[in-house]
């Protein structure tokens, strides 16, 4: 097992910022008073002049990042995902998106991972919001290994980008030899009967479910998506044409989420197969641990199992 699986996502984030920041002096890190939550204090200590704590003022942080980018810097501006996105959406749309500034917006603890911070801190809509910004690349690494591999690719991509990040340890999906391409989804389990397209914390749940389904004779193919936009529909289409059925699984609202993007792409390309979605219905978050929240919001292995079985039977 990769040593990286023992690391937290935030440590992978900060260590990569420091590693690449050594060579690339344009890397700048911005925080809005969550340096200690993101572990970027290490970057501040290593490169104090390239670290800006903007205080609790996310809208200004995004604008400052845009100004830095206009002078050739590559700013990484982080906050909890609702504050990095919906709180400063117009700033992102105008000062970053409309101007095509190379700003990397980092939103942490997305979806139900806000856990005991509750409904005020729960971004169930951030992927939808950020995908609506023209040309914005929207990425959510599924584990620490893939993030480590994605980081240099993220750095090399000069488009505005939203990076949705789990903050702590992640369920292991990939090993060190995995090939991770920023713009390609990964088939993480081969199967023939149904395709399960998953992202975020749902990839691990999908893999566990696939093993349960296999015991009952349903051979599921699991695709791990880390880039929502542009979505790698080629990989999804190839799989769906083979299996003839598909469900999506995401730690996000169903409205405007990955499932809807997949459904639209399938329809547009005349791929008509039984289709289902696992995600959060039209509601707000609440406090609770990840297990409790997954239970009440329909993100458990059992939910995936039931949906997969239902859709498979429609074939």
């Amino acid at each position: 097992m990769s040593e990286l699986h023992k690391k937290e996502m935030r440590a992978v984030y900060t260590d990569n910022l420091i590693k690449y920041g050594k060579k690339n002096k344009n890397i700048v890190v911005l925080e809005a008073d969550l340096m200690n939550c993101h572990g970027t204090k290490k970057f501040r200590d290593a490169y104090p002049t390239r670290f800006i704590n903007c205080g609790i003022a996310e809208a200004n942080m995004i604008g400052v990042a845009a100004g830095l980018a206009s002078c050739g810097k590559i700013p990484f501006a982080a906050s909890f995902s609702p504050f990095a996105t919906r709180r400063c959406y117009d700033q992102i749309a105008v000062s970053v998106g409309y101007t095509k500034m190379n700003v990397k917006i980092v939103g942490t603890d997305p979806g139900i991972l806000a856990q005991n911070n509750g409904g005020t801190h729960m971004s169930l809509e951030d992927v939808a919001l950020m995908c609506q910004v023209p040309e914005m690349v929207v990425v959510e690494p599924v584990d620490t290994v893939s993030f480590d591999k994605l980081f240099p690719q993220i750095l090399a991509c000069d488009k505005p980008m939203y990076i949705r990040l789990q903050r702590k340890t992640t369920a292991p999906i990939f090993e060190d030899d995995a090939k991770i391409d920023l713009f390609k989804a990964n088939v993480v389990r081969k199967g023939t009967d149904i395709t399960i397209v998953a992202s975020s914390i749902m990839v691990h749940r999908a893999l566990t479910t696939a093993r349960s389904l296999a015991e009952f004779g349903i051979d599921a193919e699991v695709i791990s998506v880390h880039t929502y936009k542009p979505l790698d529909t080629d990989t999804i289409f190839r799989s769906v044409k083979k299996t003839g059925a598909v469900i999506s699984c995401e730690n996000h609202h169903l409205i405007g989420g990955m499932g809807q993007m997949i459904a639209t792409a399938l329809m547009e390309n005349d791929i008509r197969v039984p289709f289902g979605m696992i995600g959060i219905s039209d509601r707000y978050g609440e406090v609770g641990n990840e297990k409790y929240l997954a239970d009440i919001m329909g993100l458990t292995e059992q939910d995936i199992y039931d949906k997969a079985e239902e859709i498979y039977k429609k074939k």
Binding site: N60, G63, G67, C71, G72, D90
Partner: peptide, 14 residues
């Protein structure tokens, strides 16, 4: 309200 933030970013870059 947004231009002044960008200006601050530019001044920090300098």
């Amino acid at each position: 309200g947004q231009g002044i933030s960008a200006a601050v970013g530019m001044a920090i870059a300098a």
